[in-house]
Structures are given as structure tokens and as C-alpha cells.
Amino acid sequence: MSGAISRDEVAKVARLARLTLSETELETFTEQLGQILEHARDMNSLDLTGVAATAHPFGITNVVRDDVVTASLDRDTVLAMAPDVRDHRFAVPRILGEAP
């Protein structure tokens, strides 16, 4: 049967994730991702009539916390880890286009 994922689809996913893959890597990952998806396809052989979809491995809902302010990180400590800082802000290469 044809693979669970095509080479083009892998290339697209890589592009969306800003990954540059060589031709060889593209082959390798198409193969490997295909195997993972094939494995998941095994579920299709089961009769799941009447079984509710599982949204999360824990069957719990409404995990919330109180609206209380807690300490934030020290700004100097955080900014010291940034590659570039100006005016106490993270400096990044100029942005082309607006936020999605």
C-alpha cells in the first residue's frame, strides 16, 4: 500500500516547522513518519462502536487555579539569557509582515 504520509506532505510539515531537510533526510523521515502513522492505523482494525473518543489520557476536567499573582522572574536574569536586548526588551531581527 502507499505510505501513510507522502514525501510532499513531509516537506510541507518541515517547511511549516522551519526545518530545512536534505533529500536524504526527506526520504528517511517520510519512511519513519510513515511507520509511526501505520502503527496508529492499527486502531482501524478494532471495532470501536459505542466507545467514546478519548480527549486526554486523564479523565479529569476543570483543573483551575485561583486568580492570585505570584512572583515573576527577575528581569535582568531573563534578559541576560537573550541574544540581544535593547531598552529592557528582547531585540529580534526585523519582522516582515504582521502577526498571524
Binding site: 535593547r86 529592557h88 528582547f90 531585540a91 529580534v92 531581527p93 526585523r94 519582522i95 516582515l96 502577526a99
Partner: peptide
């Protein structure tokens, strides 16, 4: 984001500062 340089429109900015 605050955009430095250019006309203020994003496309004209040299770099961007993020808070």
C-alpha cells in the same frame, strides 16, 4: 512588539523589540 527604524510600519523596520 515595537518596531525600530523605517516608517513605523513593520515592513520598514530594521529590528523589533519585544515586551
Amino acid at each position: 512588539s515595537t518596531h525600530l527604524g523605517g516608517s513605523g510600519r513593520l515592513a520598514g523596520a530594521d529590528s523589533s523589540l519585544v515586551d
